[in-house]
Computed example of a mutant assay.
Amino acid sequence: MLYHQLTYVIVALLISSVLLLTVDTKIYAVNAMHREKKYANVIGWIYFSLFLVIGLAQLFYL
């Protein structure tokens, strides 16, 4: 049960980070929203790092 829930969280983090880093930052750059672009970039990298940490933990420990 826990394995499937972690898999869902990992996939959600990956999709969210990719969308934030590609789509949202491009939209904010085009509309000259510099603060929002910076926040989307930071949150995207946080999500991606969480994806790596939780994914590696699931791979090695479960």
Rank of each mutant, 00 (worst) to 15 (best):
L2H: 12
I10M: 12
F51Q: 01
I27F: 13
L21V: 10
G55I: 03
I54W: 09
Q58F: 05
Y28S: 00
A12P: 05
H4M: 03
Y3I: 04
I27D: 08
Y61E: 08
A32C: 13
I15K: 11
M1Q: 11
L20H: 04
A29Y: 05
H4S: 11
M33S: 09
V11A: 11
A32E: 15
L2T: 04
W45M: 14
E36V: 00
M1S: 15
G44M: 02
V42C: 04
A57T: 07
V42M: 12
G55Y: 02
R35T: 13
A12F: 12
F48Q: 09
I10W: 05
Y39G: 01
L19C: 13
M33P: 00
F51R: 01
A12V: 07
H4R: 08
A29N: 02
I15S: 11
Y3N: 06
L62Q: 15
Q58M: 11
G44H: 02
L20V: 02
S16P: 04
F48N: 10
R35P: 13
H34W: 13
M1T: 10
G44T: 03
I43Y: 12
A32W: 10
V9K: 03
F48T: 01
I43A: 09
L14Q: 05
I46T: 06
Y3Q: 10
L62I: 02
Y28M: 06
L6D: 00
V23N: 08
Y8N: 11
A32D: 15
N41H: 12
Y47W: 13
Q5S: 12
L56S: 04
I46G: 06
M33Q: 14
F60K: 06
F51D: 00
L20N: 04
K38A: 11
Y3C: 10
Y61G: 01
L21F: 01
V53R: 06
H4P: 09
V30T: 01
S49Q: 13
V30Q: 06
I15H: 13
Y28P: 00
Y39K: 14
I54A: 03
F48C: 10
L62T: 04
H34P: 09
L56M: 09
Q58A: 12
Y3M: 03
F51T: 02
L62F: 15
